[in-house]
Each structure stands twice: as C-alpha cells, then as structure tokens.
C-alpha cells in the first residue's frame, strides 16, 4: 500500500512549507461529505499522530490516517497548471465516479 506524489508536486509542497515557516509534511485523507460521497483532505502537517502511516516521496513526508488509506491506496498527488489556474490533483485509481468539479468522489 502506498501513496506518492509527483516530483512537481513535491517541489511545490517543499516550497510552500518553506514559505510557511513550519510543517513536517502534508496530510492526505478522505472525509465523507460532498455531493458524491467523499471529499479529499489536503493539509499542511505539523504533528504526526501515533496511528499515522507515513510515506516518503521526493523528500516530502506524506501522512495518511489508517481509515483513509484504503480509499487512497495507489494515489499519486500531482501539481498541475490549467491556463491561469494551478493546484494539486489526486490521481486516485480507486475512484469510480466524481462530481462534475472533482472535489467530491465515490469509490
């Protein structure tokens, strides 16, 4: 089981953490909410919880809580640019369908 991020995403995360001045990595997770059932969580991480699973990807620590992991297994976090807009995208093989905007999904 693993969760990874692209080199580009890692570069941005490293940069954001440096500018923010603190943080041990990023926390990825899922929550039940949104129009298609689940929603992603993408946050700076300041602390590691005991039950957290950790992954390293291009020098960035990724923390995932055990309940979220089954829904995220195999996911690669990417950073993309679409015209003027830019941001993170979850490339998640578990997703069956997502709502139009992709903020919320179903497995």
């Amino acid at each position: 089981m693993s969760v990874t991020m692209s080199e580009r995403a890692a570069k941005h995360v490293t940069n954001f953490i440096a500018k923010r001045g603190k943080g041990i990595g990023v926390r990825l997770g899922v929550r039940t909410s949104g129009c298609s059932g689940m929603a992603y969580k993408l946050e700076f991480a300041d602390d590691r919880e005991d039950e957290d699973l950790t992954f390293e990807s291009h020098g960035v620590t990724i923390l995932v809580d055990p309940k979220s992991l089954p829904y995220l297994d195999g996911t690669e976090l990417d950073y993309v640019r679409e015209g003027l807009n830019e941001g993170f995208r979850f490339n998640n093989p578990n997703v069956k369908d997502a709502c139009g905007c992709g903020e919320s999904f179903n497995v």
Partner: peptide, 17 residues
C-alpha cells in the same frame, strides 16, 4: 476538475465551500 490547495491542519473545507 477543481484543483486543490493546501489547507492549514484541520482546516480542510467541505467540497464547494
């Protein structure tokens, strides 16, 4: 599809919020 931004710990918003 919407692109996500990093939130502060515990501050992730509900979708569309």
């Amino acid at each position: 599809m919407a692109l996500l931004q990093l939130s502060e710990p515990g501050q992730s918003e509900a979708p569309h919020q």
